[in-house]
Deep mutational scan, measured.
Amino acid sequence: EDAPSSDDLEQFAKQFKQRRIKLGFTQADVGLALGTLYGNVFSQTTICRFEALQLSFKNMCKLKPLLNKWLEETDSSS
């Protein structure tokens, strides 16, 4: 699987934040939901840093598919 470019990540982080707010979730909600869904709880700080593009590139790449999946799950259930 190709690693996303930093442009991709930036684009995704923006879209993710907009969708999250529109769906009415806090950063902490998302962190907990990831724990429920995938067994990895993320702190509010981590989600905040992801949205602000302040995580390392490697961590951004790791989180992106999880957050993407969460969006898909959340979209389909709302």
Rank of each mutant, 00 (worst) to 15 (best):
E1V: 14
D2A: 15
D2G: 15
D2P: 15
D2Y: 15
A3I: 15
P4H: 12
S5Q: 13
S5W: 08
S6C: 15
S6F: 15
S6Q: 15
D7L: 08
D7E: 13
D8A: 08
L9C: 03
E10F: 10
E10H: 15
E10D: 09
Q11D: 13
F12K: 00
F12Y: 02
F12M: 02
F12R: 03
F12P: 04
A13H: 00
A13F: 00
A13E: 05
A13G: 01
K14M: 06
K14L: 09
K14P: 03
Q15S: 12
F16W: 02
F16Y: 00
F16T: 05
K17L: 02
Q18I: 05
Q18G: 07
R19L: 03
R19T: 11
R20Q: 02
R20L: 03
I21P: 00
I21G: 02
K22Y: 13
K22S: 09
L23F: 08
L23H: 01
L23S: 03
L23A: 07
F25R: 06
F25G: 01
Q27H: 15
A28D: 06
A28M: 09
D29Y: 02
V30E: 03
V30M: 02
V30H: 06
V30C: 06
G31Q: 06
G31T: 10
L32D: 15
A33K: 10
A33T: 05
A33D: 04
G35Q: 09
G35T: 15
G35N: 15
T36L: 09
T36Q: 12
T36K: 14
T36I: 08
L37T: 10
Y38E: 06
Y38C: 11
G39T: 08
N40S: 12
N40Q: 14
N40E: 12
V41H: 15
V41F: 05
V41D: 09
V41T: 14
F42D: 07
F42P: 07
Q44T: 14
Q44C: 04
T45S: 12
T45Y: 06
T46W: 03
I47C: 07
I47D: 00
C48A: 14
C48L: 11
C48R: 13
F50D: 00
E51Y: 00
E51K: 05
E51T: 02
A52S: 13
A52G: 09
L53R: 11
L53V: 11
Q54C: 04
L55R: 04
S56R: 04
S56D: 12
F57P: 12
K58E: 12
K58R: 09
N59R: 12
N59V: 11
N59F: 03
M60S: 04
M60D: 02
C61Q: 12
C61V: 13
K62L: 09
L63W: 03
K64G: 00
K64R: 12
K64I: 01
P65C: 09
L66Q: 05
L66P: 02
L66E: 00
L66Y: 13
L66S: 01
L66M: 14
L67I: 06
L67Y: 05
N68V: 12
N68W: 09
N68F: 08
N68C: 11
K69H: 07
K69Q: 11
K69A: 09
W70Y: 07
W70Q: 00
W70F: 13
W70H: 05
W70R: 02
L71I: 11
L71P: 00
L71M: 12
E72G: 05
E72D: 12
E73I: 06
E73Y: 08
E73T: 11
T74V: 13
T74A: 14
D75E: 14
S76Q: 14
S76L: 10
S77M: 11
S78R: 11
S78N: 15
